[in-house]
Simulated scan of single mutants.
Amino acid sequence: MDHLYTNEEGRTLIEILVSIVIISIVVIPFLSVFIQTTKSINHSDTILDATYFAQTHMEDIHNISETYTFDEAISFLNTDSKYSLISNNETSYNILIETDKYFGEIEIQKVNDSNLTQIVISIYEDNSKNKLEAKMENYVTWES
């Protein structure tokens, strides 16, 4: 019976703890890289979505500029349900866009006495306008 206890090739508790510590030292830096990568991907997705949202509205305004005169376009945007005219004067108009995900502001400003108009679209996280997600600027000419 004594020969059963003479062959003790098991691992001690110290050896197991040391191996766990070594594995932890190797694995923990990789985990922080994965976490940072996930945060970067989520932030990039937000920026891409906001830019796409701005691009869509910029294309809408460009299409409107090819169809309507400037005054007709402002009237059209004022009656469209996805836009809300908030301020205007002879040469400058501010229009709001609001969805479940984003809050946007479109600034339309005539350039001197020409047919050229500056369009600036700013997309925010919410209507507090604390965090700008995307901004797009373009110049368009209007149908005469």
Rank of each mutant, 00 (worst) to 15 (best):
D2E: 09
H3P: 03
T6I: 13
E8T: 06
E9I: 12
E9L: 10
T12R: 02
L13F: 06
I14R: 03
I14P: 00
I14D: 03
S19Q: 05
I20K: 01
I20R: 03
V21R: 01
I23C: 11
I25C: 10
V26M: 10
I28G: 05
P29F: 03
L31S: 14
L31V: 15
L31D: 06
S32P: 09
S32L: 15
V33T: 15
T37C: 13
T38Y: 12
K39R: 15
S40G: 15
I41W: 09
I41T: 14
N42S: 15
N42I: 13
D45Q: 06
T46I: 09
T46D: 13
D49A: 11
Y52N: 08
Y52I: 08
F53R: 00
F53Q: 01
A54W: 00
A54S: 00
T56L: 13
E59Y: 14
I61G: 00
N63S: 13
S65L: 08
S65E: 07
E66I: 11
T67F: 11
Y68M: 12
T69V: 08
T69S: 14
F70G: 03
F70K: 05
A73E: 05
A73S: 10
I74T: 04
S75Q: 11
N78Y: 02
T79I: 13
S81N: 09
S81T: 12
S81M: 08
S81L: 13
K82V: 11
Y83L: 01
S84L: 13
T91I: 07
S92V: 08
S92K: 13
Y93Q: 05
Y93S: 05
E98A: 08
Y102C: 03
Y102W: 07
E107H: 09
E107D: 12
Q109H: 07
Q109L: 10
V111K: 09
N112L: 09
N112T: 07
D113Y: 06
D113P: 02
S114G: 07
L116V: 04
T117P: 01
I119T: 02
V120N: 05
I121H: 00
I121T: 02
Y124N: 03
D126F: 03
N127K: 15
N127W: 08
K129C: 03
K131T: 06
K131W: 01
L132H: 04
M136A: 11
M136S: 12
N138H: 12
N138K: 06
N138L: 04
T141E: 10
W142I: 02
W142S: 02
W142E: 00
E143Q: 15
E143A: 13
S144V: 07
S144M: 10
S144E: 10
